[in-house]
């Protein structure tokens, strides 16, 4: 079923919308959540929560790209769950690893006074990503949006994990320079 039709079902408050969304994007969402939570059961719960969140969000929202919309909802919910688990000392794994990598893009982690608008930051990162060659751009997004492990990405591109690590390292350095150039001090 086309995304537009599914969104229309949401607007009609037809529960078929949820089934159609799950059918079309359930696996993608499960993978996103599992990359973060490393648990099939928690990922499944997360996807269910995401479907409910989407049900509540549409209407009034009318997403143009349903996959990205529900993907983002799932990612945020999974990160929330991850954060809760980390508080209970059950965290670790891929997200902690990705976060520690992103630390390199932050000039002064101790200085938390600076208020940076998240939306503005997202737009700046999008601009940065558009300057990268397609392969590197997708690699970056798979690592820090989809939170695939370096090793998984290495396999997806037929490269060694070390090479992927080096490429990501260079992209993080370039991102830091880009943010500084745009006067976004993190």
């Amino acid at each position: 079923m086309e995304d537009g039709k599914i969104v229309e079902l949401y607007w009609q408050r037809s529960q078929d919308a949820i089934a159609a969304t799950q059918c079309k994007y359930g696996r993608l969402c499960h993978r996103i959540a599992r990359n973060i939570l490393h648990s099939d059961q928690e990922a499944e719960e997360c996807v269910n929560d995401a479907l409910m969140r989407v049900w509540n969000a549409i209407p009034p929202q009318k997403p143009q790209k349903l996959a990205a919309f529900i993907g983002a909802v799932t990612r945020n919910l999974a990160l929330d769950k991850y954060r809760e688990a980390a508080r209970q000392k059950r965290g670790g794994g891929a997200v902690a690893c990705a976060l520690s990598e992103l630390d390199e893009c932050v000039a002064s982690p101790e200085n938390v006074e600076q208020v940076v608008d998240e939306k503005m930051l997202s737009e700046s990162i999008s601009r940065f990503l558009r300057t990268l060659p397609e392969q590197k751009r997708n690699m970056f997004i798979r690592r820090y949006w989809y939170l695939y492990s370096v090793e998984e990405i290495a396999g997806q591109y037929g490269m060694s994990a070390n090479r992927v690590s080096v490429m990501l390292f260079r992209m993080r350095k370039a991102l830091k320079a880009h943010l500084e150039k745009e006067d976004i001090a993190l």
Binding site: A72, A98, L99, L102, D103, V106, E118, S122, N138, Q156
Partner: peptide, 30 residues
């Protein structure tokens, strides 16, 4: 994790949708 690093991770979550979809690891993505 620092708040800024977490902010960065969240901000990555808000990148343009077309970039997210293009990078999705699915068969038609290349």
């Amino acid at each position: 994790m620092s708040r800024k690093t977490e902010l960065l991770l969240r901000a990555v979550g808000g990148i343009d949708e077309d970039l997210i979809l293009a990078a999705a690891p699915r068969p038609e993505a290349g």
